[in-house]
């Protein structure tokens, strides 16, 4: 079951095409990484999902229903460029934003207190936003995004500007949200966090979707059948089907080699072969990182 489906979305601005035939399926209770270089069309797609913009054509379905304005109540959105009213108090500001999402006053106040307490910000409730540090402001923005317990949480570069401690706090909260039933769309070009958090990804480049699916499957798909072997003594006389791509000396008589295995062979066959020739210390398959996939796909296109 998909929480959100985008079907053949087209969107153009006066001077350029922002989205071309983009379709996505975002499963319920997943963390979905929306990846792509700057200017690829991620923000436009997000703005269409949040009803800020209208697609030229195509449809967005939320829980199988065509997206309408009232759905914004079940969506929480943290934009990449974000801010708050500087002259407004923390508590009031959160209350205002929560009520705009349709939450009633007393419930909103309870939840604000709960979240401020959870993120250790309770004593700042009466302070103006401008008195807060940037990191604290970002926590407030995060709280504002999730106060109304949306089914769909959209986070656009949520970690930019956070210090490492806060990054971890927010990462944990994102995982918590998912575990409690929310679906998270996570737009970023920092692949490290994608690696850790995302279950599914889609890669958008130059207004088109060029890759999507489960992170695991994609990685599987992009495996190159290369193995990294640490071994004692030089590797010599390997059978012709295996080719040694690179080799370097690690230590006295300890070497690291990368071996390409042909499609119709499996790692066990290689191992058998290796045992004859050398003493194996370590044997790992080289699985491409999301970063490598990202770079290779994007540069392939341009």
């Amino acid at each position: 079951m998909y929480l959100l489906e985008a079907q053949n979305i087209y969107k153009s601005y006066a001077d350029h095409q922002a989205l071309t035939d983009v379709s996505l399926q975002i499963p319920k209770q997943s963390i979905f990484g929306l990846l792509g270089p700057n200017g690829a069309g991620k923000t436009t797609l997000i703005r269409i999902i949040t009803s800020i913009l209208q697609a030229d054509s195509g449809a967005i379905l939320l829980n199988g229903e065509k997206l309408k304005r009232s759905h914004t109540q079940s969506i929480g959105y943290l934009p990449e460029e974000r801010g708050l009213y500087n002259k407004m108090r923390v508590g009031e500001q959160l209350l205002y934003l929560a009520r705009l999402k349709g939450l009633d006053r007393s419930l909103a106040i309870d939840r604000i207190r709960h979240w401020l307490h959870k993120l250790d910000m309770l004593e700042w409730s009466g302070k103006n936003i401008e008195d807060l540090s940037k990191g604290m402001q970002q926590k407030i923005q995060f709280i504002a995004t999730v106060l109304h317990e949306p089914q769909l949480v959209i986070l656009d570069e949520p970690f930019s500007g956070f210090d490492p401690i806060n990054v971890n706090i927010i990462k944990d909260e994102i995982l918590n949200l998912r575990d409690r039933g929310a679906t998270v769309i996570f737009s970023t070009h920092i692949m490290e966090s994608v690696e850790k958090l995302c279950d599914h990804i889609a890669l958008i480049n130059k207004s088109k979707k060029i890759l999507d699916g489960k992170k695991k499957d994609i990685k599987q798909q992009y495996r190159t059948n290369r193995f990294e072997i640490d071994h004692a003594g030089p590797l010599k006389g390997l059978e012709g089907v295996y080719s040694i791509i690179g080799s370097k000396t690690l230590d006295d008589n300890l070497f690291r080699s990368v071996v390409q295995v042909p499609e119709d062979h499996n790692p066990n066959q290689l191992l058998k072969e290796l045992i004859i020739h050398t003493e194996i210390h370590k044997f790992t398959e080289i699985i491409p990182s999301m970063n490598e996939i990202f770079i290779s796909k994007v540069s392939e296109q341009s």
Binding site: T50, R69, T72
Partner: peptide, 17 residues
């Protein structure tokens, strides 16, 4: 200008028209 400058406008118009 304030809302546009400090970017809160995007959060708000994801809630209201």
């Amino acid at each position: 200008i304030e809302e546009k400058y400090n970017r809160i406008v995007e959060v708000i118009i994801s809630s209201i028209d």
